[in-house]
């Protein structure tokens, strides 16, 4: 009884420090990613590409880097270090997709790679589409377009 109570109190105090540190790390790393995105857009604007075309190019660049990094192995270490700073931007989406692909590669191209590709990112796509459909219909009815 005493031991469990002690452990609980100890865990609470131990976790508190980590939580604040993690939050600051996530803030800085996420902020740097966001700033890099804006810098890439500015550079593309300098090449004479307009903003609506520069946005998908910027997103594709981030997806490419995250996929390649996951396949090469160093992106996993970065994710354990920076956590949400890399998981919440689109890099996390690409990372989840590539890592689930790599994990099930040995089980064959159809039942391994093919059916497990969306194992982690499927929920994002599913809830994105469902919510976009519901909210879009609501907006369509209210907006009366």
């Amino acid at each position: 009884m005493r031991n469990t109570k002690y452990e609980r109190i100890a865990n609470e105090h131990k976790a508190d420090e980590n939580r604040i540190g993690n939050a600051i790390i996530a803030f800085i790393s996420g902020g740097v990613i966001g700033m890099l995105g804006e810098i890439i857009i500015e550079v593309l604007l300098g090449f004479g590409i307009n903003r609506t075309e520069a946005i998908p190019i910027m997103i594709v660049i981030f997806i490419f880097i995250a996929s390649l990094g996951t396949a090469l192995g160093f992106f996993d270490n970065l994710v354990t270090k920076f956590k949400c700073g890399l998981l919440i931007p689109i890099t996390g989406f690409a990372h989840a997709m590539t890592s689930s692909c790599l994990d099930y590669k040995n089980e064959g191209p159809i039942y391994g790679l093919g059916s497990n590709m969306f194992k982690l990112t499927g929920s994002v796509i599913l809830y994105g589409i469902v919510s976009a459909y519901i909210f879009g219909t609501i907006r369509y009815i209210i907006g009366g377009m």
Partner: peptide, 28 residues
């Protein structure tokens, strides 16, 4: 950009650490 992206990442990190939700829940 820095402030907005950082703020979202920080909030999700706080949710991740203080609740039982996984990154999958948070992104959804």
């Amino acid at each position: 950009s820095f402030l907005f992206c950082g703020l979202i990442c920080m909030l999700s990190q706080l949710i991740l650490d203080n609740t039982k939700l996984t990154p999958g829940h948070i992104t959804s």
